[in-house]
Design a binder for these strands. Sequence first.
DNA 1: ATGACTCCCAAAGGGAGA
Length: 263
Amino acid sequence: MTRRRTLTIATFNVNGINARLSNLLAWLDYLKPDVVALQELKCEDAAFPREAIERQGYGAIWKGQRAWNGVALLARDAVPVESRRVLPGDASDRQSRYIEAAAHGIVIGGLYLPNGNPQPGPKFDDKLKWMARLHRHARTLVDLPHPAALIGDFNVIPSDLDVYDPAAWKKDALNQPEVRASYARLLEQGWTDALRSVFGSEQVFTFWDYFRQHAERDRGLRIDHLLLNPALATRLVEVGVDRWVRLEPGASDHAPVWMKIQR
DNA sequence: ATGACTCCCAAAGGGAGA
């Protein structure tokens, strides 16, 4: 096997890893990403499909949870070297929403940010608190001399360009001014939003809900993000969304989002 | 628009998602 000149790093909210296992494996076989962050495993640790993932050529670490949430990191022909499995700052947090590891020379934080609906309300308050914790932890990564990325389902619509109908999503937690401002402040630490930096003013989506044939009609949101610290951003080559995965039978409501970086 | 659609658990219908 020839060694490729770029590394491919991807994030994919699978919406139930066991319900979607064949979709996930088909996509891995197609793209052959080097590092993958998964969200919404919706399984306990013991139910993670480790053997099927390993047969596909990937080492994995994961943090599951019964019924909801759950995150994992996969590395092609390697096992991610875990550095964290909880976002610091709240000892009472029992939700599986963060996992961090080194893989193929890059520090990867894989995250599943709380949805926050309905808003206003306690779930929305929790979302903002989780984002504040993310800010504090991200500060420790952004200025590392080593390449680092924060990737996953942020549940944040960064701007009106990132939603097919801003008015229809006006009251949604993903689209609130406080949430957008918090995301913007995170970027101001020095993170590069890889998709936006390459697409410029062109619209691109990563999620389409299951209603009203929104996927087929490309009425979506951009809420899955790839953030690069400066040491990694200089190596960014290409980005993409594998929208075809969203159009397959039995698909997740999210599509995989990927970037290629120089080795 | 208390909607729709799909997962989970569990064994029906409710919680959660976004």
